[in-house]
């Protein structure tokens, strides 16, 4: 391969596709199918061992609500990050989550240590190493965190336990809203209005959640089409 204008020599196409991409797609496909199957186990075991099943209509309603939020992100995230982490990176990221805060930074650092540009074949292979390492660190960390977490929280004084039970969830929701509001301040107040007014009018969350997501996306699309307004970097 000839060097590009930066003097960088990429991996040749033939070995990249034959020795790397082919096996990546084969194993990536089956591991993603397996992990999907494994995620049905908890509901199945809860029913088989304890005879407890979620009410079907309620579970479907919850699933529909969850998808209004998750579906756009599931489409957007791989499309946005693909040029950084490549095919193997996508299989791993979609299997293990925590993409923006963990997988992407590890992919980017690996590429920067190797002094390889993103969007190249070598960049994708280096990103794969970075993400694979982050998966191992993540699994080990979360396992010990979960084990210790139960013990640590049992040592808390009652006032702190009460604070966790009452206020942790609203604080998380506020903090995440603040994080996204910084990326798109122009959408923040309209989003609150679109969600808040029906809440005050007593609408059911079933209808408010899709309205808030779709309404804010349409507003963003309109501003982008008419004025070229887009979110800043995170």
């Amino acid at each position: 391969m000839a060097p590009d204008e930066r003097g960088f020599v990429d991996l040749a196409v033939e070995p990249y596709e034959r020795e790397y991409l082919g096996p990546v797609h084969r194993v990536g496909f089956w591991t993603c199918i397996l992990i999907s199957a494994a995620m049905t186990l908890p509901a199945l075991l809860l029913y088989l061992i304890y005879g407890v099943a979620a009410p079907r209509a309620g579970a479907l309603a919850g699933l529909a609500l969850a998808l209004t939020y998750l579906l756009p992100l599931t489409i957007i995230e791989p499309l946005s990050y693909y040029s950084v982490y490549g095919d193997a990176g996508n299989y791993m990221s979609m299997t293990t989550g925590n993409i923006a805060n963990l997988r992407l930074p590890c992919a980017a650092v690996a590429q920067s240590v190797a002094e390889v540009p993103e969007g190249t074949r070598t960049g994708a292979v280096i990103a794969c190493i970075g993400i694979a390492v982050s998966v191992v660190v993540g699994v080990v960390g979360v396992f010990f965190g979960s084990l210790a977490g139960g013990w640590i929280t049992a040592q808390f004084p009652p006032w702190l336990t009460g604070a966790f039970q009452a206020y942790l969830l609203p604080a998380v929701l506020g903090a995440v809203f603040g994080q996204f509001a910084l990326r798109g301040p122009v959408y923040a107040i309209p989003a609150l209005t679109i969600a808040g007014v029906p809440l005050l009018l007593g609408w059911h969350p079933y209808s408010i959640i899709p309205a808030a997501v779709v309404g804010t996306v349409l507003l963003g699309y309109g501003l982008f089409s008419w004025k070229g307004i887009a979110p800043g970097r995170g």
Binding site: I76, V217, G220, Y221
Partner: peptide, 21 residues
């Protein structure tokens, strides 16, 4: 455009949960 859709979806859902609290 991908960033617009991603950020607006997230703001929409978190606006609902924040307003609800």
């Amino acid at each position: 455009l991908l960033a617009v859709i991603g950020v607006c979806s997230a703001l929409g859902i978190f606006a609902f949960f924040a307003a609800n609290e």
